[in-house]
Nucleic acid binder design. Structure first.
Ligand SMILES: [Mg+2]
Length: 689
DNA sequence: GAATGTAAATTTTTT
DNA sequence: ATTTACATTC
């Protein structure tokens, strides 16, 4: 239990490394984190630690170092969700996996957020649940994370603003639908794993002794389900090692409960608590601010004042910069200017990171950087692949890929037929390309082997004949022409031209002028492909680039050029959890954004709920500033465009917690200063040249 | 039913 | 700005 930058994760990774060196089998070690980024870093750090420590262990062990490094991927290191998925799929001695015992097919697909919401809506359409489907989805998500059951949910009069009994009915229907179709959503990963460990006799025994050591990072953000999983996995051997900081709990919306870490000694009276009070990350200035922000907490909280221990860097420490801009434009100008200054000081683009409270703010930041040709990558954010037009084109390109494979004589009859089948069904389900005729639409979706339409002419002719409407026949003709035309033409035409050809062939050019959905969708598609299409060559390499762009987007990877390591990173404060950077910007440090307040303002929220939420916003601010090693810049705008309307915001109340002596306030550069700076810059560059 | 208009809502993450 | 639910019209 210790504050930010005190080395909690370092201790955890070192422990894992030592366990491995001591001969503990890698696949008996379970290490859970919360975000993908943190998990990636954890794996890397453990590998490094093993190599670092190898010099200090007996030669006999050192000799096995290569074996150890090879066995590392077998260790269970990842996010809770990914580890649960692995548990559910792992076969036992008899060849059965936990999902099968729970009545799911051994291979099940995972629903994206958008798909799960759609499926929920679909499965309870005839129930007439008296609430907004989005609220219902959010409520059920939380219910799952709290390990409720439909029965216990039904006992709530209202739960998260939705009627408990009706929500429980909807839940049951939704579970039924998922199970029958072999689908699971994110919540199911935790829920099913927790169920498998706790409820099923046969399964349970296996998991209770499965891991010799259970280690959890960021324990303050465990929710009921994660807590149950960690507790049960460690129940038999009691080798549970957790690190965390109750002042950094920021995932309350996902059911995280600080009491899990605060009450650890009640669960385990014989637990040993280790406190770390030295900070090895930040400059004294930044640490002073962090300590001051913490000092403002309710009485009775653990004192976690930190001592600055980070070695003085090559650059002299600077005060925290607070800039209160008049509007976004002004704010972004300042950020861009500061970036240039930091570059002058010798920081690189990849040393810098820009945080915001909501993804909505990433837009102006991104366009400001793009306009000034500052390389950046945006991490996370709403997936472009939730757009129906984008998904349609992904499916089209998958079909084109299969058609091209056929031309290249590399067709895998089983795998590629299945791929094409899925692609065609996706296209028809989304309905962007038609057919509009309902009977024909249903007929195509019900075809047992739709891939034959594109793979053999006989299948195409049969399908066209089976259509009752000319419109559906035209649709099939367009599919044939478009997909085979693209596969044929790609040898000489660039992907950019192929895309134009496809849009044209599908008749979307005309639709684009009228249909707003299509028009906007095509803009999304351009945005997704923007970083690749202009450079994509003709032929197979170009097609692979396009397919990779869709794939990267599905994985939530940056929209901009993936290969660009040398870039400023843009991410939410939440996503920054557990990470650290030399230079941190936080934009939009304003009332109503940080602390965030609901635009509508929910009336039924109780006073204590409100206070709790606001405390979490304060912890979020603490997390944000403690990511910084050397430089910290906090900006706000008095006016900004938010969700399409101009709003006025005061600077955040949290800024007042910063001690005056560590802050440079109102350091706006006048136009004259800026001109002088540019002149100076010009001569410097000239001199260097 | 499809097309068209209106009002309300809008966070943060997990393969 | 953009989506989505719901109401109204053809
Ligand atoms: Mg950490």
């Amino acid at each position: 239990m210790a504050g930010a930058g005190s080395g909690k994760t370092a201790v955890l990774t070192r422990r894992v490394a030592l366990l491995l060196l001591a001969g503990c089998p890698a696949d008996q070690i379970f290490v859970a984190t919360f975000t993908v980024k943190a998990a990636g870093e954890m794996k890397e750090r453990i590998g490094k630690q093993v190599q670092d420590l190898a010099g200090r262990v007996p030669p006999a062990i050192r000799a096995r170092l290569d074996d150890l490094m090879r066995a590392l991927p077998k260790a269970w290191i990842g996010t809770f969700h990914s580890l649960c998925l692995r548990m559910l799929r792992e076969k036992d001695a008899d060849g059965f996996s936990a999902v099968e015992e729970l009545g799911y097919p051994p291979t099940f697909s995972i629903l994206s957020d958008a798909d799960s919401r759609k499926l929920l809506k679909e499965s309870c359409a005839d129930l007439a649940v008296p609430c907004d489907p989005r609220d219902l989805s959010a409520a059920l998500d939380l219910a799952v994370n709290e390990l409720l059951t439909p029965e216990t949910l039904a006992r709530h009069k209202t739960y998260e603003g939705v009627p408990g009994e009706a929500a429980a009915e909807a839940w049951k229907k939704y579970v039924e639908t998922k199970r029958s179709r072999g689908l699971a959503d994110f919540g199911d990963l935790l829920y099913l794993a927790a169920t498998a460990i706790a409820d099923r006799r046969m399964c349970a025994e296996r998991w209770k002794t499965r891991f010799s050591h259970v280690l959890i990072d960021e324990y303050q953000d465990t929710n009921v389900a994660q807590y149950a999983i960690a507790t049960e996995l460690a129940a038999a051997r009691r080798n549970l090692f957790v690190v965390g900081d109750d002042d950094q709990s920021i995932y309350g919306f996902r059911g995280a409960d600080i009491r899990n870490i605060r009450a650890f000694t009640e669960d385990y009276p014989d637990a040993r608590i280790v406190r770390l009070i030295r900070n090895y990350r930040s400059t004294p200035v930044i640490l002073g601010a962090a300590n001051a922000v913490l000092a403002d907490r309710p009485a009775g909280a653990t004192d976690k004042t930190l001592l600055a221990m980070a070695p003085a860097g090559a650059r002299p420490p600077e005060k925290i910069v607070v800039y209160e801009a008049s509007d976004e434009q002004d704010e972004m100008n300042f950020v861009a200017f500061q970036i240039q200054e930091f570059l002058q000081e010798g920081f690189r683009h990849e040393d810098m990171v820009i945080f915001y409270r909501v993804h909505e703010l990433s837009g102006p930041v991104a366009s400001a950087l793009r306009a000034r040709q500052v390389p950046y990558v945006e991490v996370g954010g709403p997936a472009l692949l939730e757009n129906d037009v984008v998904r349609t084109f992904r499916a089209v390109y998958q079909a084109v890929n299969v058609a091209a494979l056929k031309r290249e004589g590399r067709l895998d009859p089983i795998r590629d037929s299945l791929l094409l089948q899925e692609a065609l069904r996706e296209i028809w389900t989304l309905g962007i390309l038609g057919p509009k005729n309902r009977v024909d639409h249903a007929m195509l979706l019900a075809l047992p082997a739709p891939e034959r339409i594109l793979l053999d002419e006989q299948g195409y002719v049969e399908a066209v004949r089976a259509c009752q409407s000319g419109e559906a026949q035209q649709h099939l003709e367009r599919m044939w022409t478009g997909i085979h035309g693209a596969a044929f033409g790609m040898d000489i035409h660039t992907p950019q031209d192929i895309l134009k050809f496809l849009v044209d062939t599908f008749g979307l050019k005309d639709a684009a002028t009228g249909d707003a959905t299509v028009r906007r969708g095509l803009v999304w598609l351009q945005r997704l492909l923007a970083s690749r299409l202009p450079y994509a060559p003709p032929g197979r390499p170009g097609l692979d680039l396009v397919l990779a762009a869709f794939h990267a987007s599905a994985e939530g990877e940056p929209i901009t050029d993936l290969t660009q390591e040398n870039a400023v990173r843009l991410l939410t404060i939440h996503a920054s959890k557990g990470l650290e950077f030399p230079v941190v910007f936080v934009v939009g440090v304003e009332e109503d954004l940080l602390p965030f307040s609901h635009p509508g303002g929910s009336a039924e929220e109780t006073e204590s709920d409100r206070a709790e939420r606001e405390e979490e916003e304060g912890r979020l601010f603490y997390v944000a500033i403690t990511r910084a090693r050397e430089r910290l810049v906090l900006t706000s705008a008095a006016q900004r465009r938010l969700y399409g309307r101009v709003v006025s915001h005061r600077p955040s109340r949290f800024l007042a917690r910063l001690p005056a002596d560590v802050v440079t306030r109102g350091s706006a550069l006048s136009a004259l200063d800026r001109a002088a700076h540019r002149t100076r810059q010009f001569f410097k560059d000239l001199f260097r040249a």
